[in-house]
Structures are given as C-alpha cells and as structure tokens.
C-alpha cells in the first residue's frame, strides 16, 4: 500500500465517517431524551434520498402522501387520547409542505433539496407520536424492538413507494480539486464540511437556545425537567424532529455520491449506531471519533480483504466496546 492509496482510503473513510457521525448525533439526541434507539433513522435517510431524486425528476414523491396520512393518524390519535383543538397542531406543517410540493418548482435542484428535507423532517415527530409515545414507560428492550419493527415498516414503505431500484440525486457541486496525487471531489468536501457545520450548529443549539437547553435538561433528568415545566412530550417530538432532519440531510448528501435504494439505509444507520455507542451514547466528540474510526476501518478492511470486511470491522470493534464498558462501569457504578 503506497501513500496515494492510503490517502485515498482515508479520504473515502472520512466521507462515509462524516455521514455516520451525522446519524450518530441524531441517535444520541433521541436516545438521551427518550431512551429510544432510533434504528429507523437509516430508513429516513433512504426515504429522503429517494424523495429528492423523485422531486428532481419532476414527479410528486409518495412520501408526501405518507406524510399527510401520518399527520391525519396523529390527529386521530390525539383526539382519541382526549385532546381537542390541540390535536390539529399536526396539520399545518404537512399541509404547507404539500402545497409547496404541488405548486412549487419542485424539479429545480435548489428547490428539490430543501423541499425533500421539509417532507422528511416532520416524519420524526409524527413517528414518535404514533409509535413511541404510547410505549414511553416500556423497558428499553421493548422500545428497541419497537424501533426495529418500525424499521421494517419504513423499509417496506420505501419499496412500495419508490420501487426496488436505487436512485441518485444531483450533487451540490461538480467541482474536483487536485491535491498532490489525490483528486478530491467537491461533493466529498461538501459532505465533510456540512457535517462539521451541522455538528457545530447543534452545539450552539444545545448551548445557547432555550429549546436546546430544555432538551438537555430533559435528557439529563426527565423528572426534574418536568418539575420545572419542560414538556416531556414536546422535547421528545423536538428530538425526533432533529434526528429526522439530520437523517434526511445525510440522505441527500450521500445520494449524490452513491445510489441509495430503499434498503440501503439500515446498514448506514447501523454504522451510525456503532459510532454513537463508541461515544458511550452521551459524548459527541467520542461519537465523532467513533464515526471516523468506523469509516476508515471499513475503507481499510475493504482494501485488505473485501470479502471479510464486516468481520474485520466488527472484530476490531469488540475490544473498543470492552474498554468502553469497563470504563463506563467504573464511572457509573451502582452503589
């Protein structure tokens, strides 16, 4: 392996690692606030990519109708749960997005991408309302199984709505830069740059805004947060919205680099989970290190022995887990 190869592999690993990091951040937000491991995040990633590709082709994506249907279901669920006018709060955003899709210049690339994000992001709070809120008091394992089941539902929906073939979206930039022997694609740089920017933005959000602080409070002490008037339901919805947004953005970014199919998302989401776990489900910098680690390991593993890549990546993960678990136990020992 020469330097050129090594650098190319690192660049490759870094790009995928950046996507894993985005997903890890989404998982961390949702987990810390609601204890749900949001497995279906990967499916939202795929749905976002397919949605934007379809918008760029000029047609109305099926996810739009799915969104509207979920919104109506959420209203019904709220009504059944005894709430009255407040139940209607699920409607404005989907209605607005629907209008923007039907009457906007949806095929234009500058319009399709933000529109795609706007279609997928509300899935977060809606799915949270319909699937997870009812089970808020269940064991962590039950919540995990619910998340798994939701993954299969969304994956199936992706196939029905978009068919089994993958799709690619227009890249943000076609530019390419020569750095020594390497050719860096503008899109890869954009992915890494946007991921960094988004993580910085989230830091700011959690550090400086009222909503962000409320989320952090809800994450660190659920009961306490409720006592000071932070609405647990609201913070849950917000966390899921953030996660869905992050997933959608990842999907749109990555679909310009590689075709994304309805079933591509799960594997990507799993790697995000790996990164989040390496971050101990609490620490963002550690999750970032984990994300890059997984991305680079994959790249190197593919080079050394592509057929055994998964074995290599996951076998190398085990000592890391062991170390983390030991450290975690030391720090958080029950007494």
């Amino acid at each position: 392996m020469n330097l050129f190869v090594l650098l190319t592999l690192l660049q490759d690993g870094l790009t995928t690692g950046a996507i894993y990091l985005l997903l890890a951040v989404g998982l961390l937000i949702v987990f810390s606030v609601t204890r749900v491991i949001f497995v279906p995040q990967g499916d939202l990633l795929a749905l976002a990519a397919l949605t934007v590709a379809q918008l760029e082709a000029g047609s109305v994506p099926g996810t739009l109708w799915l969104l509207d249907a979920l919104a109506v279901l959420a209203v019904l669920a709220d009504l059944l749960a005894g709430s009255r006018w407040r139940a209607l709060r699920w409607l404005p955003v989907p209605a607005l997005v629907t209008l923007a899709t039907l009457f906007g210049p949806r095929a234009a690339a500058w319009y399709a991408m933000p529109l795609g994000l706007a279609i997928i992001t509300p899935f977060g709070p809606l799915l949270w309302r319909l699937v997870f809120r009812r089970a808020a008091g269940a064991t962590m394992l039950t919540l995990l199984i619910l998340a798994m089941a939701l993954h299969f539902v969304l994956e199936g929906a992706g196939m029905v709505l978009f068919g089994p073939d993958g799709a690619a979206t227009a890249p943000l930039t076609e530019a390419a830069f020569a750095v020594g022997p390497l050719t860096l694609s503008g899109q890869s740089l954009a992915v890494v740059g946007l991921c960094a920017a988004l993580v910085a933005l989230l830091r700011w959000f959690f550090g400086a805004t009222i909503e962000g602080k409320a989320l952090r409070a809800a994450a660190s002490d659920r009961l306490g947060a409720r006592l000071v008037g932070i609405d647990a339901a609201r913070s849950g919805g917000l966390a899921f919205a953030l996660a869905a947004f992050v997933a959608a953005l990842s999907g749109v970014l990555i679909a310009a680099l590689t075709p994304i199919g309805y079933d591509t998302g799960f594997a990507i989401g799993l790697k995000g989970f790996v990164a989040a776990i390496v971050g101990g489900l609490v620490s963002y910098p550690a999750a970032a290190a984990g994300a890059v680690l997984v991305g680079v390991l994959e790249s190197l593993g593919s080079f050394w022995a592509s057929a055994y890549r998964d074995v290599i990546v996951y076998a190398l993960l085990v000592p890391v887990l062991l170390l983390l678990s030991w450290r975690g136990r030391r720090a958080g020992e029950e007494t």
């Binding site: 790009t15 990555i254 199919g261 591509t264 594997a267 790249s299 593919s302 080079f303 592509s306």
Partner: peptide, 12 residues
C-alpha cells in the same frame, strides 16, 4: 467483494 447496500467501493 462488496455488499449490495454499501455506499462506497473505492477501496476495492
């Protein structure tokens, strides 16, 4: 080899 759901085959 690569997996159907992989997003990159740069290394291969």
């Amino acid at each position: 080899r690569y997996a159907r759901a992989d997003t990159t085959v740069q290394a291969q």
